[in-house]
Amino acid sequence: MRPVIWDDDEERVSDVRQAAQPCFQCGVCAASCPVFRVAPEFNPRIAVDEIVQTGTVAVTGREWYCAYCLMCEQRCPMGVALCEILVAIKNLSARDGKVPPSIVEMMDVIRFTGKVSHPSKGTTRRRRELGLPELPEVDAAEVQKLLEVTGAIDRLTRYREAECEPQ
């Protein structure tokens, strides 16, 4: 499946639907899913079925429960890339600003540091104690620019707007 790059939702959904089409609902994905095992409300099979049957992507919020372990794809007898389909679904909901707060936080950190974790004073000290070299500096402006041209900043803004809307 093509990566989610082009800003055309309709084309995107039909792409996803086509990728899901070979599914014959055998359930081996769910049977192999570690999340489904402990939280049956998340079922990769049904996520795919929904797209094939209705041609629309139902944003339930549960699509974010995918741990991206790729076991479903490994075993799918029809070669359906379920994780990729779920990524596409999540991208579509992220475009509408529907994102779990923890991921927004992570994106914010990346936006300003280029990394997913702040190198704290403690880290620097521990690295020095261990005799580790200093980490090469990342040009934050470069990261900022990439996030901007790839639409990540827009998505973050939309998230903030959605948050402010009265529920």
Binding site: Q25, C26, G27, V28, A30, A31, P40, N43, R45
Partner: peptide, 13 residues
């Protein structure tokens, strides 16, 4: 044996 009862959408162990 681990599977899914796809008619009920439930894990089967």
């Amino acid at each position: 044996v681990r599977g899914e009862d796809t008619l009920l959408g439930r894990p089967v162990v």
